[in-house]
Design a protein around this nucleic acid. Structure first.
Lengths: 164, 164
DNA sequence: AAAATTAAGTCAACATGGCTGACGTAAAAT
DNA sequence: ATTTTACGTCAGCCATGTTGACTTAATTTT
């Protein structure tokens, strides 16, 4: 069937393939976030808290404005989430050494525990997919996702991800 | 640097790699949804409306319960969005031929226009990433994303995506 | 034919996490 | 001394998810 169509109209298969790949991303992302969401529920936290925990965990001492730049949300949105995390003792703020206006963000011990708990689940899920797909597939996955990041963001995002 | 660490502790690179791939998915998904969001804003619609338009467009005559099963939201959440689309003439409902309780969903001509407009942008974005990454990378991308879908959902999702 | 189940819808209330706008404070840069 | 920057707060709005309770019409089961 697809064979016939692609012989008659080579663009059909391509468009259908693109459609499939788009839906694949939708379903994968949905299941990719399900594990963390489940754990976070026990703490009364949501996905927004997870993002903060994740990026503070991976970038100890990150400033508020750097975090805002990664998350691309308003400081009012961030503050709600960040204040909850600070009040409940998962994140702590220290004034910057050279610039004392800054509040450098760190995970507390409790925060690190939660971060590990969540990322272990997520890493296991991704690791299982990688094992099953093989190393070449992983390389392809990375290439495609990098290309999916918009040009304006790409350099910034990639160096942030890779450069640590 | 990574060389040293991976020589000393081979698990480090693996964990760091997983972390990178997780962030890659976060950033890619963010930019992947940005284009459609932009267009939808002009119509006063959001991402929720897009999902309905997308899946009704790809599955003409889909029932409400099938759609609920794909989107994994409550019927109350769906109804808000679906009613808006029907009222504004982007989706129409027809009673099922064999089971008249069902309301089969179709895009109107206007709905198809919007669907095309959005998916053209998204498909171009994905196509650009594919072109740049190459065919092998695309195969890898698909394999990994399939593996990322949870086992319970996998067969259902995959056959739904591929089987058309 | 009567009873039970199913598909779909509705009303109401609430939570999460985005947003805008306006304004405040302390530290740093000019 | 003035302006800019980093960060914060208050207040209110919007989109989209949730739960729970209940209705209607059509189909299926008994």
């Amino acid at each position: 069937m697809a064979d016939v169509k692609s012989t008659i109209n080579p663009l059909f298969l391509r468009e259908e393939e693109l459609r499939q790949c788009i839906e694949l991303l939708f379903f994968a992302y949905r299941d990719f976030t399900a594990g963390p969401d489940q754990i976070l529920k026990d703490y009364g936290f949501g996905r927004a808290h997870h993002r903060v925990i994740h990026f503070v965990g991976g970038n100890p001492g990150i400033t508020v404005s750097e975090l805002l730049d990664i998350l691309r949300i308003t400081k009012q949105s961030l503050s709600r989430v960040l204040n909850a995390l600070v009040e409940r003792g998962f994140v702590e703020q220290k004034p910057g050494a050279t610039d004392r206006r800054q509040r450098l963000l760190y995970l507390t011990e409790e925060g690190k525990l939660l971060e590990h708990k969540i990322s272990r689940v997520q890493q296991e899920q991704v690791a299982a997919a990688f094992r099953q797909a093989g190393g070449d597939a992983v390389a392809g996955y990375r290439k495609v996702l990098e290309g999916l990041i918009s040009e304006e963001d790409r350099e910034q995002a990639i160096t942030r991800i890779m450069g640590r």
